[in-house]
Design a protein around this nucleic acid. Structure first.
Ligand code: MN
Ligand code: MN
Ligand code: ZN
Ligand code: ZN
Lengths: 143, 143
DNA sequence: TTTGCTATTGAAAATCACTTTCATCAATGT
DNA sequence: ACATTGATGAAAGTGATTTTCAATAGCAAA
Protein backbone atom coordinates (compact mmCIF):
# COMPACT_ATOMS: atom_id res chain seq x y z
CA UNK A 1 0.00 0.00 0.00
CA UNK A 2 1.39 3.35 -0.95
CA UNK A 3 1.81 6.26 1.37
CA UNK A 4 -0.31 9.34 0.97
CA UNK A 5 1.32 12.38 -0.57
CA UNK A 6 0.75 14.21 2.67
CA UNK A 7 2.79 11.66 4.54
CA UNK A 8 5.44 11.52 1.86
CA UNK A 9 5.90 15.25 2.11
CA UNK A 10 6.02 15.29 5.88
CA UNK A 11 8.60 12.53 5.79
CA UNK A 12 10.61 14.58 3.34
CA UNK A 13 10.42 17.61 5.60
CA UNK A 14 11.60 15.58 8.57
CA UNK A 15 14.37 13.81 6.65
CA UNK A 16 15.74 17.11 5.43
CA UNK A 17 15.59 18.70 8.84
CA UNK A 18 13.12 21.30 7.62
CA UNK A 19 10.31 22.66 9.70
CA UNK A 20 6.68 21.71 9.57
CA UNK A 21 4.76 24.94 9.34
CA UNK A 22 1.17 26.06 9.17
CA UNK A 23 1.76 27.63 5.76
CA UNK A 24 3.26 24.50 4.26
CA UNK A 25 0.22 22.53 5.30
CA UNK A 26 -2.09 25.12 3.82
CA UNK A 27 -0.28 24.95 0.49
CA UNK A 28 -0.21 21.17 0.66
CA UNK A 29 -3.96 20.94 1.26
CA UNK A 30 -4.68 23.37 -1.51
CA UNK A 31 -2.47 21.53 -3.94
CA UNK A 32 -3.83 18.11 -3.07
CA UNK A 33 -7.45 19.17 -3.22
CA UNK A 34 -7.33 19.72 -6.95
CA UNK A 35 -6.01 17.58 -9.74
CA UNK A 36 -5.75 20.45 -12.18
CA UNK A 37 -2.43 21.55 -13.58
CA UNK A 38 -2.23 24.69 -11.51
CA UNK A 39 0.11 27.59 -11.95
CA UNK A 40 1.73 29.22 -8.93
CA UNK A 41 -0.55 32.21 -9.30
CA UNK A 42 -3.69 30.10 -9.57
CA UNK A 43 -2.90 28.18 -6.42
CA UNK A 44 -1.88 31.39 -4.67
CA UNK A 45 -5.22 33.03 -5.49
CA UNK A 46 -7.13 29.94 -4.46
CA UNK A 47 -5.37 29.85 -1.08
CA UNK A 48 -5.73 33.58 -0.62
CA UNK A 49 -9.49 33.21 -0.48
CA UNK A 50 -9.26 31.30 2.80
CA UNK A 51 -5.91 32.52 4.04
CA UNK A 52 -5.56 36.22 3.22
CA UNK A 53 -2.09 36.46 4.71
CA UNK A 54 -0.25 33.77 2.85
CA UNK A 55 2.48 35.13 0.64
CA UNK A 56 3.12 34.45 -3.01
CA UNK A 57 6.75 33.62 -2.21
CA UNK A 58 5.67 30.98 0.26
CA UNK A 59 3.46 29.27 -2.30
CA UNK A 60 6.26 29.50 -4.82
CA UNK A 61 8.83 28.03 -2.44
CA UNK A 62 6.55 25.33 -1.15
CA UNK A 63 5.72 24.11 -4.65
CA UNK A 64 9.45 23.78 -5.29
CA UNK A 65 9.67 21.64 -2.17
CA UNK A 66 6.84 19.47 -3.48
CA UNK A 67 8.89 18.80 -6.59
CA UNK A 68 11.97 17.98 -4.57
CA UNK A 69 10.00 15.66 -2.35
CA UNK A 70 8.63 13.85 -5.35
CA UNK A 71 4.93 14.50 -4.83
CA UNK A 72 4.72 17.05 -7.63
CA UNK A 73 6.23 17.75 -10.99
CA UNK A 74 6.86 21.09 -12.62
CA UNK A 75 5.43 21.40 -16.11
CA UNK A 76 5.62 24.01 -18.84
CA UNK A 77 2.89 24.12 -21.43
CA UNK A 78 4.31 27.05 -23.31
CA UNK A 79 1.96 29.70 -21.96
CA UNK A 80 4.73 31.30 -19.93
CA UNK A 81 3.49 29.94 -16.62
CA UNK A 82 5.11 27.27 -14.50
CA UNK A 83 2.56 24.69 -13.46
CA UNK A 84 2.62 21.82 -11.01
CA UNK A 85 0.87 18.49 -11.18
CA UNK A 86 0.56 15.52 -8.87
CA UNK A 87 3.03 12.70 -9.27
CA UNK A 88 1.82 9.26 -8.34
CA UNK A 89 4.43 6.72 -7.29
CA UNK A 90 5.64 4.77 -10.29
CA UNK A 91 3.20 6.34 -12.66
CA UNK A 92 3.82 8.42 -15.73
CA UNK A 93 1.64 10.18 -18.26
CA UNK A 94 1.84 12.65 -21.10
CA UNK A 95 -0.53 15.39 -22.22
CA UNK A 96 -3.02 16.16 -24.91
CA UNK A 97 -3.92 19.86 -24.99
CA UNK A 98 -6.76 21.67 -26.68
CA UNK A 99 -5.49 24.87 -28.23
CA UNK A 100 -9.01 26.24 -28.46
CA UNK A 101 -10.47 25.80 -24.97
CA UNK A 102 -7.34 24.97 -23.00
CA UNK A 103 -8.48 21.58 -21.80
CA UNK A 104 -5.68 19.27 -20.68
CA UNK A 105 -6.13 15.53 -21.02
CA UNK A 106 -3.72 12.96 -19.72
CA UNK A 107 -2.78 9.73 -21.41
CA UNK A 108 -0.13 7.08 -21.24
CA UNK A 109 0.87 4.59 -23.84
CA UNK A 110 3.28 1.74 -23.36
CA UNK A 111 4.13 1.39 -27.04
CA UNK A 112 5.14 5.01 -27.41
CA UNK A 113 7.27 4.93 -24.27
CA UNK A 114 9.03 1.87 -25.56
CA UNK A 115 9.67 3.43 -28.95
CA UNK A 116 11.19 6.44 -27.27
CA UNK A 117 13.63 4.29 -25.39
CA UNK A 118 14.56 2.45 -28.55
CA UNK A 119 15.19 5.67 -30.43
CA UNK A 120 17.31 7.07 -27.63
CA UNK A 121 19.25 3.86 -27.36
CA UNK A 122 19.88 3.74 -31.09
CA UNK A 123 21.58 7.12 -30.72
CA UNK A 124 23.58 6.01 -27.72
CA UNK A 125 21.62 8.06 -25.24
CA UNK A 126 20.49 6.96 -21.83
CA UNK A 127 17.15 8.68 -21.31
CA UNK A 128 15.89 9.63 -17.88
CA UNK A 129 12.91 11.81 -18.71
CA UNK A 130 10.94 12.98 -21.65
CA UNK A 131 8.23 15.38 -22.55
CA UNK A 132 5.49 14.56 -25.00
CA UNK A 133 2.71 17.00 -25.63
CA UNK A 134 0.11 16.75 -28.37
CA UNK A 135 -1.59 20.01 -29.28
CA UNK A 136 -4.88 19.93 -31.10
CA UNK A 137 -8.61 20.45 -30.91
CA UNK A 138 -10.61 18.50 -28.39
CA UNK A 139 -13.81 16.59 -29.21
CA UNK A 140 -16.04 19.27 -27.71
CA UNK A 141 -14.41 22.06 -29.68
CA UNK A 142 -14.45 20.05 -32.92
CA UNK A 143 -18.14 19.68 -33.42
CA UNK B 1 14.32 21.81 -56.53
CA UNK B 2 13.71 23.77 -53.37
CA UNK B 3 14.48 27.42 -52.91
CA UNK B 4 17.18 28.56 -50.54
CA UNK B 5 16.06 29.95 -47.21
CA UNK B 6 17.60 33.26 -48.17
CA UNK B 7 15.41 33.48 -51.24
CA UNK B 8 12.35 32.27 -49.35
CA UNK B 9 12.82 35.03 -46.81
CA UNK B 10 13.40 37.72 -49.41
CA UNK B 11 10.28 36.60 -51.23
CA UNK B 12 8.37 36.81 -47.98
CA UNK B 13 9.67 40.32 -47.37
CA UNK B 14 8.61 41.41 -50.83
CA UNK B 15 5.23 39.69 -50.67
CA UNK B 16 4.44 41.41 -47.39
CA UNK B 17 5.56 44.79 -48.62
CA UNK B 18 8.27 44.93 -45.97
CA UNK B 19 11.66 46.47 -46.53
CA UNK B 20 14.88 44.71 -47.31
CA UNK B 21 17.42 46.10 -44.90
CA UNK B 22 21.08 45.69 -44.11
CA UNK B 23 20.25 44.50 -40.61
CA UNK B 24 17.83 41.84 -41.79
CA UNK B 25 20.48 40.42 -44.04
CA UNK B 26 23.00 40.43 -41.23
CA UNK B 27 20.63 38.51 -38.98
CA UNK B 28 19.74 36.16 -41.81
CA UNK B 29 23.38 35.38 -42.54
CA UNK B 30 24.14 34.82 -38.90
CA UNK B 31 21.17 32.54 -38.46
CA UNK B 32 21.84 30.53 -41.60
CA UNK B 33 25.53 30.09 -40.89
CA UNK B 34 24.88 27.88 -37.90
CA UNK B 35 22.61 24.92 -37.47
CA UNK B 36 22.62 25.18 -33.70
CA UNK B 37 19.43 25.87 -31.78
CA UNK B 38 20.33 29.44 -30.94
CA UNK B 39 18.63 31.69 -28.47
CA UNK B 40 17.98 35.32 -29.30
CA UNK B 41 20.76 36.38 -26.97
CA UNK B 42 23.25 33.92 -28.43
CA UNK B 43 22.63 35.08 -31.97
CA UNK B 44 22.68 38.69 -30.82
CA UNK B 45 26.10 38.26 -29.20
CA UNK B 46 27.43 36.41 -32.20
CA UNK B 47 26.33 39.19 -34.53
CA UNK B 48 27.58 41.88 -32.18
CA UNK B 49 31.14 40.68 -32.68
CA UNK B 50 31.08 41.77 -36.32
CA UNK B 51 28.33 44.37 -36.18
CA UNK B 52 28.68 46.33 -32.92
CA UNK B 53 25.69 48.51 -33.65
CA UNK B 54 23.00 45.97 -34.25
CA UNK B 55 20.29 46.08 -31.62
CA UNK B 56 18.85 43.27 -29.57
CA UNK B 57 15.34 44.32 -30.59
CA UNK B 58 16.23 44.00 -34.24
CA UNK B 59 17.52 40.47 -33.78
CA UNK B 60 14.43 39.66 -31.76
CA UNK B 61 12.07 41.09 -34.38
CA UNK B 62 13.89 39.55 -37.29
CA UNK B 63 13.78 36.09 -35.77
CA UNK B 64 10.02 36.48 -35.43
CA UNK B 65 9.89 37.30 -39.11
CA UNK B 66 11.88 34.16 -39.87
CA UNK B 67 9.19 32.15 -38.13
CA UNK B 68 6.42 33.89 -39.98
CA UNK B 69 8.17 33.36 -43.27
CA UNK B 70 8.53 29.68 -42.55
CA UNK B 71 12.31 29.40 -42.59
CA UNK B 72 12.60 29.09 -38.81
CA UNK B 73 10.72 27.64 -35.89
CA UNK B 74 10.61 28.84 -32.33
CA UNK B 75 11.48 26.19 -29.74
CA UNK B 76 11.47 26.04 -25.95
CA UNK B 77 13.69 23.53 -24.22
CA UNK B 78 12.71 24.50 -20.72
CA UNK B 79 15.76 26.58 -19.88
CA UNK B 80 13.75 29.77 -20.03
CA UNK B 81 15.16 30.89 -23.37
CA UNK B 82 13.36 31.06 -26.67
CA UNK B 83 15.40 29.39 -29.38
CA UNK B 84 15.09 29.25 -33.14
CA UNK B 85 15.97 26.45 -35.48
CA UNK B 86 16.00 26.00 -39.25
CA UNK B 87 12.91 24.58 -40.86
CA UNK B 88 13.33 22.57 -44.01
CA UNK B 89 10.37 22.38 -46.34
CA UNK B 90 8.11 19.47 -45.46
CA UNK B 91 10.45 18.09 -42.86
CA UNK B 92 9.89 17.46 -39.16
CA UNK B 93 12.07 16.24 -36.34
CA UNK B 94 12.14 15.93 -32.60
CA UNK B 95 14.97 16.31 -30.08
CA UNK B 96 17.23 14.29 -27.89
CA UNK B 97 18.99 16.45 -25.30
CA UNK B 98 21.98 15.72 -23.10
CA UNK B 99 21.37 17.06 -19.64
CA UNK B 100 25.08 16.90 -18.85
CA UNK B 101 26.77 18.72 -21.73
CA UNK B 102 23.78 20.33 -23.38
CA UNK B 103 24.19 18.64 -26.75
CA UNK B 104 21.07 18.61 -28.89
CA UNK B 105 20.53 15.80 -31.35
CA UNK B 106 17.73 15.63 -33.86
CA UNK B 107 15.81 12.58 -34.88
CA UNK B 108 12.61 11.65 -36.61
CA UNK B 109 10.69 8.45 -36.47
CA UNK B 110 7.69 7.58 -38.57
CA UNK B 111 6.36 4.96 -36.17
CA UNK B 112 6.28 7.33 -33.23
CA UNK B 113 4.57 10.06 -35.26
CA UNK B 114 1.94 7.59 -36.30
CA UNK B 115 1.37 6.37 -32.78
CA UNK B 116 0.87 9.93 -31.63
CA UNK B 117 -1.84 10.47 -34.20
CA UNK B 118 -3.53 7.25 -33.18
CA UNK B 119 -3.50 8.18 -29.53
CA UNK B 120 -4.90 11.62 -30.23
CA UNK B 121 -7.56 10.19 -32.47
CA UNK B 122 -8.56 7.61 -29.89
CA UNK B 123 -9.29 10.52 -27.54
CA UNK B 124 -11.20 12.40 -30.19
CA UNK B 125 -8.54 15.04 -30.68
CA UNK B 126 -7.41 16.46 -33.98
CA UNK B 127 -3.69 17.14 -33.49
CA UNK B 128 -1.90 19.89 -35.34
CA UNK B 129 1.46 19.99 -33.57
CA UNK B 130 3.36 18.17 -30.95
CA UNK B 131 6.48 18.40 -28.91
CA UNK B 132 8.62 15.41 -28.10
CA UNK B 133 11.86 15.83 -26.23
CA UNK B 134 13.96 13.05 -24.77
CA UNK B 135 16.31 14.10 -21.99
CA UNK B 136 19.25 11.92 -21.09
CA UNK B 137 22.99 11.47 -21.22
CA UNK B 138 24.74 11.45 -24.57
CA UNK B 139 27.25 8.80 -25.66
CA UNK B 140 30.24 11.06 -25.00
CA UNK B 141 29.11 11.90 -21.48
CA UNK B 142 28.26 8.30 -20.67
CA UNK B 143 31.69 6.73 -20.89
C1' DT C 1 8.33 26.02 30.19
C1' DT C 2 11.85 29.17 28.94
C1' DT C 3 15.57 30.05 26.05
C1' DG C 4 18.35 30.17 22.09
C1' DC C 5 19.28 28.93 17.50
C1' DT C 6 17.73 28.72 12.94
C1' DA C 7 14.52 28.06 9.51
C1' DT C 8 10.46 30.28 7.56
C1' DT C 9 7.55 34.13 6.21
C1' DG C 10 5.66 37.99 3.60
C1' DA C 11 6.46 42.33 1.47
C1' DA C 12 9.18 44.50 -1.38
C1' DA C 13 13.02 44.82 -4.40
C1' DA C 14 15.61 42.60 -7.92
C1' DT C 15 16.08 39.52 -12.04
C1' DC C 16 15.27 37.65 -16.41
C1' DA C 17 13.79 37.31 -20.82
C1' DC C 18 11.41 39.28 -23.54
C1' DT C 19 8.22 43.15 -25.72
C1' DT C 20 6.91 47.77 -26.74
C1' DT C 21 7.70 52.69 -27.32
C1' DC C 22 9.53 56.50 -29.66
C1' DA C 23 12.62 59.71 -31.90
C1' DT C 24 15.66 59.13 -35.69
C1' DC C 25 16.98 56.63 -40.02
C1' DA C 26 16.84 54.53 -44.21
C1' DA C 27 14.22 52.00 -48.09
C1' DT C 28 11.33 52.69 -51.85
C1' DG C 29 8.16 54.81 -55.04
C1' DT C 30 7.34 59.12 -57.74
C1' DA D 1 15.84 64.63 -55.11
C1' DC D 2 11.67 64.23 -52.12
C1' DA D 3 8.06 62.41 -49.60
C1' DT D 4 6.19 58.63 -47.35
C1' DT D 5 6.38 55.03 -44.33
C1' DG D 6 8.53 51.05 -42.49
C1' DA D 7 12.88 49.85 -39.73
C1' DT D 8 16.15 50.54 -36.12
C1' DG D 9 18.34 50.94 -31.47
C1' DA D 10 18.20 52.67 -26.86
C1' DA D 11 15.55 52.73 -23.25
C1' DA D 12 11.42 51.92 -20.78
C1' DG D 13 7.81 48.57 -19.74
C1' DT D 14 5.98 43.78 -18.71
C1' DG D 15 5.01 39.45 -16.55
C1' DA D 16 6.60 35.80 -14.11
C1' DT D 17 9.40 34.48 -11.21
C1' DT D 18 13.39 34.73 -7.70
C1' DT D 19 15.93 36.85 -4.02
C1' DT D 20 16.55 39.84 -0.05
C1' DC D 21 15.75 41.04 4.60
C1' DA D 22 13.70 42.18 9.00
C1' DA D 23 10.35 40.01 11.79
C1' DT D 24 8.41 35.40 13.25
C1' DA D 25 7.75 30.91 14.48
C1' DG D 26 9.49 25.91 14.95
C1' DC D 27 12.16 22.90 17.69
C1' DA D 28 15.19 21.21 21.01
C1' DA D 29 18.24 21.78 24.81
C1' DA D 30 18.21 23.17 29.43
MN1 MN E 1 -0.80 15.78 -16.04
MN1 MN F 1 16.13 20.82 -34.13
ZN1 ZN G 1 -11.27 22.29 -26.58
ZN1 ZN H 1 26.49 15.05 -23.16
Amino acid sequence: MKKSKRKLFHDFIARKGLKSTRQRDIVLDGFLSSDAHMSIEELYLKLRARHPNIGYATVYRTLKLFSESGIAREIHFGDGQTRYEHVAEGEHHDHLLCTRCGEVMEFSNEAIEKLQDEIAESHGYLVHTHKLELYGICPKCRK
